[in-house]
């Protein structure tokens, strides 16, 4: 009898698990086994690591990224900074962060006055619908930022490999 009871316990658990993963599948086409996500706290500590005690001002930076992406594995992204590039006054670096990938950093891009235009483009992965933050560091030591919200239907980074 006891054995019977145990078996029914297990099957009930299985049923619940199945129901759970079915619900998950409803939202995400691929079942994800996801490690701890980066959190908004990790995002702000990553930004703090970059800027230190400096204040980050809004503006100057433009982040071009689609607001809705079907596949988080390749999201085209362009960051440009509306600032001159002269020998004495230029954009030193551009840093891109995210909120919910397994880690908050996406990329750091280092420019020189010879760049002529402060603009970089690449393709990134997004593990979830989230906020992407771009920060520019200028040669005078000031920091400027912008952010964009992206909705992702197929998550990247943590999917199970077939």
């Amino acid at each position: 009898m006891k054995r019977m009871a145990n078996m029914s316990d297990i099957s009930r658990r299985h049923v619940l698990q199945l129901a759970g993963s079915a619900a998950l599948c409803g939202g995400l086409p691929i079942v994800t086994v996801r490690p701890a996500q980066a959190t908004p706290a990790m995002l702000s500590s990553a930004i703090r690591n970059l800027v230190g005690e400096a204040t980050v001002q809004q503006g100057k930076v433009k982040l071009d990224i689609p607001p809705l992406v079907e596949n988080g594995n390749t999201v085209p992204m362009t960051v440009s900074v509306d600032h001159p590039m002269t020998e004495t006054d230029y954009v030193k670096s551009i840093h891109v962060f995210n909120e919910k990938n397994p880690q908050p950093n996406i990329g750091n891009f280092y420019l020189t006055p010879r760049a002529g235009r402060a603009q970089v483009a690449t393709r990134i992965r997004l593990a979830d619908s989230q906020k992407v933050v771009a920060i520019a560091k200028l040669s005078d030591g000031s920091f400027w930022q912008t952010s964009a919200d992206v909705i992702v239907t197929l998550a990247a980074c943590t999917e199970e490999v077939p």
Binding site: N73, T74, N101, F109, T112, A115, R123
Partner: peptide, 25 residues
């Protein structure tokens, strides 16, 4: 002479693509 450098993290897509600018000197 270095004109552009990037640190890449796992959040950069497979087959990493970079586009950037430089003045033709």
């Amino acid at each position: 002479a270095e004109i552009f450098r990037a640190d890449l993290f796992p959040a950069i897509s497979a087959n990493p693509f970079m586009s950037f600018f430089t003045i033709a000197t």
